[in-house]
Design a protein around this nucleic acid. Structure first.
Length: 426
RNA sequence: GGAGAGAUGGCCGAGUGGUCGAAGGCAGUAGUCUUGAAAACUACCGUGGGGUAACUCACCAAGGGUUCGAAUCCCUUUCUCUCCGCCA
């Protein structure tokens, strides 16, 4: 969450930001709760001070009457304290719950707009693939070549589930390792993370684990969830810790499954592998000094581009508009790869996303570093997709399809797959 | 899953009702000494909230309870260790 001390001093800025993000936040109510809390807090503290003073008077020996008198005063204080503490707890709960709904500040250069249409394309790489035949979409390809089985996925696991089969299995592992090698080369420490995380971590990262609009599966009878991304488990890794400045930046990359409910996500673009309940993803995560985060954000984007350029897939980079940022993000860049089977005659589809969340997550998770004066300060945290395997699969199958129905392998992947094509089935 | 032991500051570790935000040690920071270093000595050395400040409040795994007063007693939960069982 943001620093709630700023809701007064930066009120106009915060109000404008909420408006730019097309969010509905009860800022006035947070302000009101803040004042109530301050009053109750000082009241509570005065009473506690009185209790402590009363108790310390009784350290020494004294006559019975004097002691009885102090005990009775103490009892009186005890009742008062429990009343005001209860009230305080209620107000604080509401204050922090509502305060957490205030979004992060937005980068001054982030385009202002409501939906993904308003995102600003800032770069194009390559040309959309041209075919001298009518290209198929990956669902058709997957079926023709016996690579992806959606029907069996639906039968066994429900809608938006799939089996990868045959060379698609090897291909996925190849992409995984290809991307991993690039990210490690850039100094990231590799992890395979848990696929389960506690709700408090989810909340700290800025996910809402509960509620109808939540995209998260909660595990019944526990306070844990299936992760929607390794951002959650990588971000939670240093929860509650004070890091040494000399150890920053910390660069981590984590491979995990990603589970998403995708409730109500039907429609044309939800077909096939594009939007599924479970996929694998390699995620990058950086913890750094505040003054470095803009630069590292660009670094992450550059690595994402390197991965897709290496695959020889054309894409565009999009500077995400304020309305589409998501509460924790200060700025967000997406890579949208060309997908020939998407829409009527091919479209760009999101394959990566990188966000600079500044101190929004670190404040909730209490991840800090010591500055020159030895004072703890909040770190900045950034995340970015190295590769989302299912969507990379879509892009590769659709862009590398041949007229005879086979799939060529991108050159960079051949050392990892051990084959240079997935042959058509006669 | 069963039986037992435990959780205290960056680390180790004392503390079983008031004198404890917490002994002692290690590590760290600054200084004295030294040509320099080491050693020795001296001082400082947890986090958060409130206050210009003096100061004050909270925190000894988490939550609840007993008490005038809880690191200390009781309950619940979580985690760790040891033994047994089971298991990829």
């Amino acid at each position: 969450m943001i620093d709630l001390k700023e809701i007064k001093s930066r009120n106009e800025e915060i109000t404008a930001n909420i408006k730019n993000r097309f969010m509905n936040v009860q800022l006035d109510q947070v302000l009101e709760l803040q004042e109530q809390r301050a009053l109750l807090l000082s009241e509570t503290e005065d009473l506690r001070a009185a209790r402590n003073a009363n108790a310390s008077k009784m350290k020494d020996k004294m006559d019975k009457d004097a002691r009885a008198e102090l005990i009775s005063q103490g009892k009186d204080l005890k009742i008062k304290i429990s009343k005001v503490e209860k009230k305080l707890a209620e107000v604080e709960d509401a204050y922090f719950t509502l305060g957490a709904t205030i979004p992060n500040y937005a980068h001054p250069e982030a385009p202002v707009g409501k939906e993904d249409k308003d995102n600003l394309a800032v770069k194009f790489f390559g040309e959309p693939t041209k075919f001298n035949f009518k290209p198929l979409d990956h669902v058709q390809i997957g079926e023709n070549l016996d690579l992806i089985d959606f029907d069996k996925g639906t039968k066994v696991s429900g809608a938006k589930s799939y089996y990868l089969k045959n060379k698609a299995v090897i291909l996925q592992m190849a992409i995984e390792r290809y991307a991993m090698d690039i990210v490690i080369k850039h100094g990231f420490t590799p992890f395979i993370t848990p696929d389960i995380a506690k709700e408090e971590i989810l909340k700290g990262i800025g996910f809402n684990p509960r509620g109808a609009e939540s995209n998260i599966y909660t595990i019944e009878g526990t306070d844990t969830c299936l992760v929607g991304t390794a951002e959650i488990t990588l971000g939670g890794y240093y929860q509650g810790e004070i890091l040494e400045k000399k150890d920053l930046p910390i660069k981590m990359t984590g491979l995990s499954h990603c589970f998403r409910r995708e409730a109500g996500g039907a429609g044309q673009y939800s077909k096939g592998l594009y939007r599924v309940h479970q996929f694998s993803k390699l995620e990058m995560f950086i913890i750094c000094l505040p003054e470095q985060s803009d630069e590292f954000h660009k670094n992450i984007l550059a690595i994402e581009e390197e991965i897709f350029q290496g695959l020889g897939i054309s894409y565009r980079v999009v500077d995400t508009c304020t309305g589409d940022l998501g509460a924790p993000a200060y700025r967000k860049f997406d890579i949208e790869a060309w997908m020939p089977g998407r829409g009527d005659s091919g479209e760009y589809g999101e394959v990566t996303s990188t966000s600079n969340c500044t101190d929004y997550q670190s404040r909730s998770l209490q991840i800090r570093y010591r500055d020159e004066e030895g004072k703890p300060q909040f770190v900045h945290m950034l995340n970015g997709t190295a590769v989302a395997l299912s969507r990379a699969m879509v892009a590769i199958l659709e862009n590398y399809q041949c007229e005879d129905g086979s799939i060529k392998m991108p050159k960079a992947l051949i050392p990892y797959t051990g084959f240079d094509a997935i042959e058509a089935i006669k």
